[in-house]
């Protein structure tokens, strides 16, 4: 799955979103999503992304990992207006599997849809 071009991300009005009190949430496949999130943090862009300490992650089953991830997303989108970006291009949900598919299916269930292959909006 192709990574999103960093130029496309930097062209987004990320600071304006932050000023308008929208929260930016970063999703994607490891390690792409964590690299994208850290690079945005370095630009002082306020954002959220889900991760657990490795020891805790190792001790969880697949079901428990998804439960923790879902609870995190649920809390973020409930408490504020959220703009969600994905570190990997999605041309169709059918090409996505694993944890990212669970994340996107959950957001689609809540009325979100994928825009331009890397944004998730309501």
């Amino acid at each position: 799955m192709k990574k999103v071009d960093p130029i496309q991300i930097s062209n987004l009005p990320l600071k304006e979103w932050a000023k308008s009190k929208s929260r930016l949430l970063v999703l994607g496949k490891y390690p792409d999503y964590i690299k994208l999130a850290k690079s945005l943090e370095e630009k002082e862009i306020s954002l959220d992304y889900f991760y657990l300490p490795s020891r805790e992650w190792d001790s969880l089953s697949r079901n428990d990992r998804w439960k923790r991830n879902k609870d995190f997303i649920s809390e973020k989108i409930r408490n504020s207006k959220c703009v969600i970006i994905i570190s990997n291009y999605i041309s169709s949900l059918d090409e996505v599997d694993g944890q990212l598919r669970d994340e996107l299916d959950y957001l689609v269930e809540l009325g979100y849809h994928i825009e331009d292959g890397f944004k998730v909006v309501k």
Binding site: K29, Y30, I34, Y51, L52, S54, D97, L100
Partner: peptide, 16 residues
């Protein structure tokens, strides 16, 4: 490979 892509940690090994 799926196991690596599904990791939600801020550091560690990967394959891609």
């Amino acid at each position: 490979i799926l196991y690596s892509q599904d990791k939600r940690v801020n550091e560690g090994h990967y394959i891609c």
